[in-house]
Amino acid sequence: MAEIVTTETGLDRALAVLKSGEVVAIPTETVYGLAGDATNGDAVLRIFEAKGRPRFNPLIAHVGSIEMATGIALFDPLSLKLTEKFWPGPLTLVLPARQPSTIHPLVTAGLDTIAIRMPQGFGRKLIDAFGRPLAAPSANSSGRISATSADAVAADLGARIPLIVDGGATQVGVESTIVKVEGGEVHLLRPGGISAAEIEQATGRKVLRRQGGAVQAPGMLASHYAPHAGVRINADEVRPGEALLAFGAERAKGSELAVAVLNLSETGDMREAARNLFEHLQRLDRSGAAAIAVERVPTDGLGEAINDRLTRAAAPRDFPQNRT
């Protein structure tokens, strides 16, 4: 099983693991990430192997400074404006990759673009000490629920990785927002911890949504973030054998018969709901319910990211629903 260390004591241990070409699970403000040296093909391959992640699905390169970012990507003025407002923080930018690149091609999945984010807290401190970008997708088996605590990482990946850095529960609870600037327009590739409204306010431009198309960034697969149990969204009633993921003060019909009930936010607070989303899904999944009914969650603000994750969790699965 993985060794677990704290953020207060684990920096040197994490650096040693990264320098050896291995991977380490680290806390960020969004979710826990499975980090490896983005310039080392063996390390990046270990990320894919530990997660069971398809290699056509690109990774985010995490940086510690704008200088590190501009060394691996070409920034337009609007993208730079977004970094000034939201970095460090839960915003990922998809940009043209600088050539020749020091980033291993596995990170970009062969694309001519690269996804970049500057995390807060321990993640940024680790990158600064390491001196190179870290590839760091969410620290969970591919397609499954993202981890928002060290315990969740250990339960899923503990037998496959050497080290987990415990920074407590994550602050945001959902992954970063991913945007791409093209032709002076801001395209939303994945909703996340920063709302489209916040981006529109910062840029003075309408955020455009993309429907379908090729995978350009992480989190764009139709089936993702899924528990073992089935998920049924926008439920107005609870069916026999189901658990209930509730939201707000009003309950779905039959909620008293649910196998288990957890509320994302009794007061309807979207930030609280985002923080609770993955942890509540994991707890309901462990209840033994055949399926999880999810009450309707508004789509405004962070609700867009929450509904995106729930929709992908409810999508038809291309992996087995076993509990082993």
Score class of each variant (00 low, 15 high):
Phe130Ser: 04
Thr108Asn: 07
Arg275Pro: 01
Gly204Met: 13
Leu257Gln: 14
Ala196Gly: 12
Leu188Phe: 05
Leu11Arg: 12
Asp269Ile: 03
Gly158Met: 05
Thr6Phe: 05
Arg124Asn: 15
Ser223Phe: 12
Met68Pro: 00
His224Glu: 05
Ala313Cys: 03
Pro162Leu: 14
Lys81Cys: 03
Glu200His: 02
Val174Lys: 10
Lys206Met: 07
Asp37Pro: 00
Thr108Ile: 14
Glu175His: 06
Gly212His: 06
Asn40Met: 05
Ser255Trp: 15
Ser255Thr: 11
Ala14Ile: 02
Arg132Gly: 06
Pro218Ile: 12
Glu250Tyr: 11
Val294Phe: 02
Asp37Ala: 03
Phe75Val: 12
Gly158Asp: 14
Ala69Arg: 13
Phe247His: 12
Ile306Cys: 06
Ala14Gln: 10
Glu295Trp: 04
Val165Trp: 08
Val261Ile: 15
Ala274Cys: 09
Thr203Ser: 14
Gly36Cys: 09
Ala315Tyr: 06
Thr203Phe: 02
Ala43His: 12
Pro58Asp: 14
Ala139Val: 01
Ala314Gly: 04
Asp308Asn: 12
Ala135Tyr: 05
Thr30Asp: 01
Thr39Cys: 08
Glu29Tyr: 03
Val165Met: 03
Ala305Ser: 11
Arg53Ile: 10
Ile161Leu: 14
Thr70Gln: 13
Gly184Tyr: 13
His187Asn: 15
Leu15Ala: 07
Thr70Gly: 04
Leu93Tyr: 00
Arg239Pro: 00
Arg13Thr: 09
Leu80Glu: 08
Ala246Arg: 11
Pro133Tyr: 05
Glu29Ala: 06
Ala25Trp: 12
Glu3Trp: 10
Ile4Cys: 09
Asp166Leu: 05
Gly168Pro: 08
Ile292Leu: 13
Ser265Leu: 06
Gly52Ser: 08
Thr177Trp: 07
Ser265Gly: 08
Ile199Leu: 10
Thr324Leu: 13
Leu93Asn: 00
Thr6His: 13
Leu111Arg: 15
Ala109Glu: 08
Ile199Lys: 10
Ile114His: 14
Ser255Tyr: 15
Val107Cys: 07
Thr7Gly: 11
Glu8Cys: 04
Leu208His: 15
Val94Gly: 12
Leu188Tyr: 09
Ile4Gly: 00
Ala293Val: 15
Val24Asp: 00
Pro100Val: 00
Ala249Gln: 10
Arg46Leu: 06
Arg144Trp: 02
Phe86Gln: 09
Val94Ile: 15
Val297His: 09
Phe75Ser: 10
Glu29His: 04
Ala314His: 09
Gln282Asp: 12
Pro96Arg: 03
Gly192Met: 10
Pro90Tyr: 04
Leu95Glu: 02
Arg209Met: 06
Leu80Arg: 14
Arg124Gly: 15
Ala258Tyr: 13
Ile114Met: 11
Thr170Lys: 09
Gly268Ser: 06
Arg232Asp: 01
Leu281His: 05
Pro100Asp: 12
Ser79Lys: 02
Ile164Thr: 04
